Amino acid sequence: MSPRARTLRPLDEPEAARLRAAELTYVADRLGTTLDGEEPPPGYQRLRAARVVGHGRDHFEAAVAALDDWQVQRRSGAAVRADGGSLTVGTVAVVRLALPVVGFVGVDAPVRIVDVADEDDRRGFAYGTLPGHPEEGEESFVLSIADDGVVRFTVDAFSRPASRLARLGGPLTSTAQAIMTRRYLAALETP
């Protein structure tokens, strides 16, 4: 069972404009690398995990609706402030992560959506990190439905520390990422 979903709040326009104008903090040969399961750029650590979260077209569509409403992040215990109502390339957000290994300390993680998958049997998005994010890299959240109706959720990321806190965290930072990935995967499971 996932933690109670937090409320989605809008970004105020000055902050949204600042984030839309900011440069991504990582370099990739092609944005959306994680969305396509490609290898990360050199020097980045990859974290990829997948889980079956349900069965059937109805569950797939319900999971897509939840994904499109930032429910993965919100059900995982993160607070989200985002611009606009739809997840399209260019949408910016600040995901406030409650670090699971250090109690109630929260970290703001600004991101921009860099690619979207919108196919009949595969939907999702990838976001890249912006200045102020403790890591630099990209993360994708993809739902797929197989011919037999199995609905699979995949989280794929590459990252490296960007902040002093993340660098000092060393193995704790990797542990926190792994915990959040498990929470993300559990967020769309069938109850």
Rank of each mutant, 00 (worst) to 15 (best):
Asp147Pro: 11
Ala98Val: 14
Asp118His: 00
Asp12Gly: 04
Phe104Ile: 15
Ala62Met: 05
Pro3His: 13
Ala98Glu: 08
Gly128Cys: 01
Gly124Met: 01
Val142Leu: 11
Asp12Cys: 04
Arg51Val: 12
His133Trp: 01
Tyr127Pro: 06
Ala186Cys: 07
Ala79Glu: 14
Val89Cys: 06
Ala82Gln: 01
Phe60Gly: 10
Thr33Ile: 10
Ala176Asp: 01
Val94Trp: 02
Gly43Ile: 01
Glu15Leu: 12
Gly90Asp: 04
Leu11Ser: 04
Val101Asn: 15
Leu168Gln: 10
Gly137Glu: 01
Ala28Tyr: 02
Arg4Ile: 01
Phe141Pro: 07
Leu97Arg: 10
Ala117Glu: 03
Gly137Arg: 00
Pro100Glu: 04
Ile145Lys: 06
Arg167Ser: 15
Gly149Val: 06
Val101Gln: 15
Pro134Ile: 05
Val94Met: 07
Ala22Asn: 10
Val89Leu: 06
Val94Thr: 08
Glu38Met: 08
Pro171Val: 07
Gly54Leu: 03
Ala49Gly: 14
Phe153Ile: 13
Ala109Phe: 05
Pro10Phe: 00
Val95Gln: 03
Leu168Met: 09
Ile113Met: 06
Ala50Val: 05
Val155Ala: 10
Gly54Ala: 05
Ala22Asp: 05
Leu130Glu: 14
Pro100Ala: 02
Pro100Ile: 03
Phe125Lys: 07
Pro171Met: 11
Tyr184Glu: 08
Phe60Pro: 15
Arg30Gly: 09
Val52Glu: 06
Glu136Leu: 08
Ala82Thr: 01
Arg81Gly: 04
Pro131His: 00
